[in-house]
């Protein structure tokens, strides 16, 4: 296990963390600002992935496909907001969880009816199929580098938006005290709609970008929803900064667990026990991390509503 191998694994952890961040950012934004738990975020992610894959396949343009997917998903999200989510803003979290869980069930059947039950093809853009040579000894998938870049750009963009723009100020005002903000003339309803659309756009972006390296299939939203929820909870719900830190933390812990734990256990334990224990522990590393963080800080690392 040399330095380059360790460096590569850290990079992999970072990459996985940023993928989770793309999904978690939208989730935590909607939750933090609108106090709304939207499980259907996973369905928007799925919609983004399916639309991007289909458009990419038929048009040949990946960039165009991502943009179409984002726009289409925002429209879908607007429909869901208008039909369901809007009526949930004033309700408790449990009601939100239940109704949006219902949306997931409907979305999965809908996707099955439209595109069939089999996973669909989501090609990698031709220019990015191979690896690039980062160091002499370290080839790294070009597409993953793009993911890293987009993840960092989104993180920076969100930071600027929330902290340094007029819209961000309105968003923060609406979040911290809705009635006061309304009294001061802020159209909070409009701000909320903007935030919900932004969340949907982020989900679609994440889905569209994940397509080329993962299976585009029904249930893909639920599979990644759990790690994304873990991320926003560790980070402190509603905090974009928290989600960023937590996503990197989860990505690193999960990757390190898979890469380093089994060989380490093999060095100290009998082989058969190590073979059973290593992967099992690596599989739950993320949950152990969350339980540990919440035991020490019951409201996450960066509590947004202190």
């Amino acid at each position: 296990m040399d330095a380059i191998f360790i460096f590569e694994q850290l990079l992999n952890g970072l990459g996985y963390g940023l993928m989770l961040f793309l999904l978690a950012a939208g989730l935590t934004l909607v939750f933090g600002i609108m106090d709304t738990m939207n499980l259907a975020h996973g369905s928007l992610y799925m919609a983004g992935a399916y639309i991007a894959a289909k458009v990419h396949e038929s048009s040949g343009s990946f960039l165009g496909a991502v943009l179409v997917a984002i726009v289409a998903t925002i429209l879908i999200a607007a429909l869901i907001e208008w039909l369901v989510v809007r009526r949930l803003y004033s309700r408790d979290h449990l009601a939100q969880v239940l109704a949006t869980f219902g949306v997931i069930l409907i979305a999965d059947d809908l996707v099955k009816a439209i595109w069939g039950p089999s996973p669909i093809m989501a090609p990698t853009p031709a220019a990015l199929t191979g690896p690039v040579q980062l160091l002499a000894e370290l080839p790294y998938p070009a597409y993953r580098l793009v993911l890293l870049g987009v993840g960092l750009a989104v993180a920076l963009g969100l930071y600027l938006l929330v902290n340094h723009t007029r819209m961000g100020m309105l968003v923060r005002a609406g979040a911290s005290n809705r009635s006061m903000a309304e009294f001061m003339g802020v159209r909070v309803g409009r701000v909320f709609s903007f935030v919900f659309a932004l969340g949907a756009a982020l989900a679609a972006l994440a889905g569209a970008l994940m397509g080329p390296i993962g299976a585009v299939q029904i249930g893909m939203g639920e599979a990644i929803l759990i790690p994304a929820l873990v991320v926003i909870v560790i980070g402190g719900i509603g905090s974009v900064r928290g989600a960023f830190v937590a996503a990197l933390l989860v990505g690193l812990v999960d990757t390190a667990g898979r890469a380093f734990l089994p060989p380490m256990l093999r060095a100290v334990l009998p082989p058969s026990l190590a073979a059973d224990l290593g992967p099992a522990l690596a599989g739950i590393a993320m949950y152990v991390l969350m339980a540990a963080v919440l035991t020490l800080k019951p409201a996450g690392l960066f509590p947004a509503r202190a």
């Binding site: 694994q9 992999n12 890469a259």
Partner: peptide, 20 residues
Amino acid sequence: EIYTKVGQIDYAAEIAQIRA
């Protein structure tokens, strides 16, 4: 001999092991 998590999404760590 590598064992992975059931339903795993990201295989970068395992692929790096294979390359090594």
